[in-house]
């Protein structure tokens, strides 16, 4: 079934834009392969957080330079994504340590019951790695959207000052912000629906759901994806404005 769906997706992408469709599809395949390699590196016992950073860098590089081409826009985006990643990695580290969302919740015990739990890999760092990699897509895309829009604005109004250009970047950012919040929320709700039915059958109360590890792990993941977008908007606006005006 997945193969049929993948073919449909590919055809649709080509229909919208032939060249970009092919590039996008190829980049997805690449990204998938990279994820698998990174997953394997973690299995072999390398530090998951370093692996996650590496994965994020390669993935942003692919999305930015392969799909969007090498220019001042993508350069600014890459810089801002790296800054955001560093900020987020620190906050994710603190949050994961605090809330202890590592590992599997009570709800998945059946699914993992056939495995031995003595695997000698700290699941706290696995959680951090997971959150970092899952937010990279949203963050990179918000960043490239802003830097390209700012570039267009600058091309059409070369006389703009730093403050005005930065402000228009933030204005474009607001659009992206609402869009991303919506998209991510529903991705979360889709996953959450099955969980909700389970919670209902298990007679969980509202408060018990809030303390469930499965719920909180999903929730923190989605929230950090959104926060990544929020942070990247001002940072990209600043860096892009700065380097556009410096060029002049």
């Amino acid at each position: 079934m997945n193969i049929v769906l993948a073919i449909i997706l590919f055809l649709l992408m080509i229909y919208i834009d032939f060249k970009r469709g092919i590039k996008l599809f190829l980049s997805l395949v690449f990204n998938f392969l990279i994820l698998i390699v990174i997953f394997y590196m973690i299995v072999l016992g390398l530090n998951p957080i370093i692996c996650a950073f590496l994965a994020c860098l390669i993935i942003s590089y692919i999305i930015l330079y392969f799909v969007n081409g090498e220019n001042i826009k993508t350069e600014c985006s890459l810089k801002s994504v790296i800054i955001v990643l560093i900020i987020l990695a620190i906050s994710i580290f603190i949050m994961t340590k605090l809330s202890r969302i590592a590992g599997f919740g009570y709800e998945s015990t059946e699914e993992i019951s056939m495995f031995s739990y003595d695997i000698h890999i700290d699941f706290t760092s696995i959680s951090i790695c997971l959150i970092l990699i899952s937010l990279i897509g949203a963050t990179v895309d918000a960043s490239i959207a802003i830097s390209s829009a700012l570039y267009e604005v600058y091309q059409n109004n070369k006389h703009l000052e730093f403050k005005e250009l930065f402000k228009s970047g933030m204005n474009i950012g607001k659009d992206i912000l609402c869009t991303t919040t919506n998209t991510l929320l529903f991705v979360f709700l889709g996953d959450f629906m099955t969980l909700m039915i389970w919670f209902y059958h298990g007679h969980y109360s509202f408060l018990e759901i809030m303390s469930a590890k499965t719920f909180l792990a999903e929730f923190i993941k989605i929230m950090f994806s959104a926060i990544g977008c929020f942070l990247v908007i001002p940072i990209t606006s600043y860096i892009t404005t700065h380097s556009l005006l410096k060029k002049k």
Partner: peptide, 24 residues
């Protein structure tokens, strides 16, 4: 298209990481 597709891709595929590690 490319924005949204990338967002969905990483949010969904990464969810399997813990199970992958445990299984392998």
């Amino acid at each position: 298209m490319s924005t949204m597709v990338n967002v969905l891709f990483f949010t969904y595929i990464c969810a399997e990481l813990p199970l992958f590690i445990l299984a392998i």
